[in-house]
Nucleic acid binder design. Structure first.
Lengths: 188, 188
DNA sequence: TATGAGTGTTAGTGGTAACTTACATATTAG
DNA sequence: CTAATATGTAAGTTACCACTAACACTCATA
């Protein structure tokens, strides 16, 4: 019965399907709320969009990367992070794709700009990990590699669905990717 | 003075900026042509869009990947392909980003769907290369890695501009990525 | 010269969408 | 019970846009 929750749920559902192109009418209908209520609360569609999305991002994509970064074994650390993020991203694939699409179009604030968010969070994690190990590494290159892996599973055609792998298979996959990333690091 | 060329150039310019959301009015203005001319020639905006984009894709992204695939040394082959495609993609970054955005929204035909096009073309190249070498490799995994690299340079924030690297630096970068991909292959 | 194809101009149609206004109703707090 | 606050309904405003119709103009070719 909480209107706010109703609105958020309806808005997310509609926005995932249509992005910012969705009309406030559709959102109102899906949320079971009068259109004018949306405007009274959020003033503009854009504000509704960013408000809702900021909220969702924190809930669904909040990461404990700095915890994971404490793992001393780099291969293990990479495997964990890949496994963790890949799962979240693929589980929310439609949402992620919508955010990427809007981001590429350039009408997203920094707070909900997924490439921005992912990349900077990865960099922080990597910095933390290698700082602890007192190891000098090209953080940008490394973060880019990881980001590329994630993007590839969200954007490229995907026949052998990641969703349908057993958790062991996922772990193996993550490990394989981790080794690939690792191979560009060890030379120090 | 060729109207067709005028229209194509104007349309591309506008579509790159705004995607399919661009209005036919804008296109007409940019092309220096009456709006109705667009409709007389292409019937619908969608048809104009796909016609123009199909044309551009062939011109700018046409690849000789099967030639490159003849290189026997896998590391060299990978380096060449990465260098080659990365250059094309980054040079046409705005176009690529627009196409990715539209593709993620799901309103693109197969012919101009960039992830589709890139992925299948990569797979063909890899298949050809490893077939020649009589080597069995997980093509999908490998193509995904390559695709991820490309996507990362187009989508992730990019401070140390790829554009501004010397050709030697680019080659080194491509080589580094190639080695990373290679490291997941050699185990056979 | 006449014909036809391609183009421009102008106006218009029908639809949609963001956002507003005015008023009525419901809900809640003091 | 009352007053403030949140909500719904319905109608409207303004702007944009895909697409069409009507008519006049240019120009090449037969």
């Amino acid at each position: 019965m909480d209107k706010t929750e109703q609105i958020f749920k309806g808005a997310i559902a509609v926005f995932i399907k249509k992005g910012m192109q969705a009309s406030t009418q559709e959102v109102a209908k899906e949320a079971g709320v009068a259109e004018v209520t949306l405007y009274r609360r959020y003033s503009t569609k854009e504000n509704l969009f960013t408000t809702v999305l900021k909220n969702v991002l924190e809930k669904k994509f909040g990461s404990h990367i700095l915890e994971i970064a404490k793992e001393k074994d780099t291969e293990l650390f990479l495997t964990n992070i890949i496994e963790d993020r890949l799962e979240v991203l693929v589980k929310n694939k439609d949402l992620v794709r919508m955010l990427l699409s809007e981001s590429l179009r350039g009408n997203l604030t920094d707070k909900i700009n997924l490439p921005e968010v992912i990349f900077s969070s990865l960099k922080k994690g990597l910095e933390s990990h290698f700082h602890l190990k007192n190891q000098q590494v090209d953080i940008d290159f490394c973060a880019r590699q990881l980001g590329g892996i994630f993007l590839s599973y969200v954007i490229l055609p995907n026949d052998q669905q990641f969703d349908k792998l057993t958790s062991q298979e996922r772990r193996d996959l993550a490990k394989k990717h981790a080794k690939s990333v690792l191979s560009t690091i060890e030379e120090i």
